[in-house]
Design a protein around this nucleic acid. Structure first.
Lengths: 156, 156
DNA sequence: AAAAACCCTTGAGTCGCTACAAGGTCAAGC
DNA sequence: GCTTGACCTTGTAGCGACTCAAGGGTTTTT
């Protein structure tokens, strides 16, 4: 199958597949006469695996590790377990951080219950004051904006 | 005051301040004879405001909007309230997503309670199967890895 | 045979910074 | 007066995980 079909089947998109190839996550497929990438079922399985992992918010590096174990069935999977435990720890910590953030935001929101002149808006006032705790973040779970799974865009 | 002192007072760092200036979030300060940026108290207040907002995981675009209202005290602050409500919505949604993610990860982890050969590891097996829901994410709150507030690095 | 749809490569852009390089400026100490 | 070292300047490259655009070639459909 060609790259477009693979993308459809895996719910991915074409650029992402080529990106994974560049990154060494997907093996380079064979080429057709016209220099098109030709994929087989194992490519689909591997891509699906990767997308599942990304769906679980793992980094490409973590996924690389997991793929290594998939390819070395005789090895001990203890590291897989550890990787997952650590990842779960990140998620749990991130949830806690976001809950603290939510509390702060709700408190801030409460300072301006109605619409008024910006000069007397309690929210803007609150943001100018101190007391907002900045917390260091040493894990790899992003903040509030962004980076979700990117899905192939819907036809319009 | 010069940029280094401003950075210290705001708990930011020098490069970030110059970056905000380039991005139009901080007004260009005056310059000294030696072409140094010279800041006043209002710059400090403004930078502090920005850092607070970043501490609440707002994007620079959202912050731009809020700054606009700070500068137009006669305007109605309804949009400020809406912006905050929307932002809270993002956070709440993201928490829900991460909780679902945690559940999935725990389930997955349960499939391999001990260390064994990778070929029989229930985790790797689970990741190869379908059934992992990829959810579209239209808000701007990142997933599990990364993007926290960047803090000036500690002296070692 | 022509048009549409697909594919190719290359390179740049996204966000919010961080960090480095190469150099200019300035106050203090010897 | 000269060096040291802190501070400043501009400019550039890098992070992660893609995404998109330009400018072609190939295949499929009409």
């Amino acid at each position: 199958m060609k790259i477009g079909e693979l993308a459809r089947l895996a719910g991915s998109n074409v650029e992402t597949i080529r990106y994974y190839e560049r990154e060494g996550l997907l093996p380079k497929p064979g080429r057709s006469e016209g220099n098109y990438r030709i994929y087989g079922p194992m490519h689909l399985e591997r891509l699906t695996f990767i997308r599942h992992c990304r769906g679980l918010d793992m980094t490409l590096d973590e996924i690389r590790t997991l793929l290594h174990f998939k390819e070395s069935p005789e090895e001990n999977c203890g590291e897989v377990n550890r990787l997952l435990d650590e990842h779960i720890g990140h998620v749990v910590r991130r949830i806690g951080e976001l809950q603290a953030l939510e509390k702060q935001l709700l408190e801030l929101r409460g300072r301006c219950p109605d619409e008024r002149q910006a000069s007397t808006c309690g929210i803007l006032e609150g943001l100018s004051q101190s007391g907002i705790n900045e917390k260091p973040m040493e894990n790899h779970i992003p903040g509030v904006h962004g980076t979700a799974l990117n899905h192939p865009k819907e036809p319009e």
